[in-house]
Design a protein around this nucleic acid. Sequence first.
DNA 1: CACTATAGCGAACGAACGTTCGGACGCTAT
DNA 2: ATAGCGTCCGAACGTTCGTTCGCTATAGTG
Lengths: 205, 205
Amino acid sequence: MSPRSSLAEAARTRSAILARGVAVASVEGLAGLTIGRLAADLGMSKSGLLGPFGSKESLQLQVVEAAADIFWREVWEPVADRPPGLARLAAVCGSWVGYLARPAFPGGCFFVAAASEYDDRPGPVRDLVLGYADRWHRELRDQARRAVADGDLPAGTDPEQLVFELTGLTLALHQALRLRHDPHAVPRACQGMARLLGVPVHAAA
Amino acid sequence: MSPRSSLAEAARTRSAILARGVAVASVEGLAGLTIGRLAADLGMSKSGLLGPFGSKESLQLQVVEAAADIFWREVWEPVADRPPGLARLAAVCGSWVGYLARPAFPGGCFFVAAASEYDDRPGPVRDLVLGYADRWHRELRDQARRAVADGDLPAGTDPEQLVFELTGLTLALHQALRLRHDPHAVPRACQGMARLLGVPVHAAA
DNA sequence: CACTATAGCGAACGAACGTTCGGACGCTAT
DNA sequence: ATAGCGTCCGAACGTTCGTTCGCTATAGTG
């Protein structure tokens, strides 16, 4: 506990709070994340923790943003150099499966939990989660469109339908891994994706 | 509120508590269900509400059981008279989609929310939810096995893989309905299921 | 070397949490 | 008629919730 801090130290404190917040929220849920619990985990006082954020809702929103950064970095960036279309889509599927299986957060994917938790709770948190979900959905759909336009997927393939089914496979993977501890979940997800795409899908390390 | 009750009245009170508990938990989550909130909703005192159950955890467990009864009655029983194998599997898929789209609970499917909420929280609640999930999984797998044995699905079809992908489609349907309010979600789920089964799937009313 | 800004602490707040206890009331059976 | 039982209420408990306030101690600025 050496409070020899400066303005740069404050930014590091903020990062530590958000990192821990994402981890806790992936297990306990975003609503179950409490100031006292988080402060105790980090050896801080409740007031010191709430200071940089002002309110719990503001903290929640920034936790969602921090989780989105991690998702983007872990799933998208490793495959961003692949050529757009089918190659990139297949690569992002493998990256996505690897991210879920790793897992990146102690409670599995933060957004799977947050989407289910806030799908029926109107408010800024739901709006933000939905915004990131939409962005991801559009990203996948655009790659699928490109793949169809390139002739790498059968003509007449509906990109929206494809994304719907790919998303379903990742949700099934998440449930099989987290709830059922199914050791065959990863190859099953890859197999389903490969059948949809017509090319092999390999879970990224 | 005429407390001219008897032992039969007590059972009715218990049912009302559980019915309301399932509804609230499908929106707020099983952990977010609070004694005070539930008592206020029903015009009861907290002590009177907790009486028949003894503790919150016991109440939660019985809420899970009540939700399982509803799921079974709404999804399984309407198609239980269909011949086992592919016919019953296709019918149950349509029934399942109808149940999710209706929806049976104000917050969508109780078990989709509970599975995600408790997948990383060890304890009796997780164990019970997992037990019902396993039972449902086995039921579907048995029908898929029968369909393969009957020659109604291609030889070499892996029943476990089929159930994995069907489950994924229902999870994608739930997310598309609850979070994204996608009006095309139901036909997409039916189309994906029909492709997996080789026969049409119609969402039940 | 003072001066100001600020990061974080400690204490306190009102509200809500789950839980416990004694008593009031209405039913059933003697 | 009355005794007994079960249902539910009202009040209170200790704890934790999110939030606010004043304070100390340090870092950077002139």
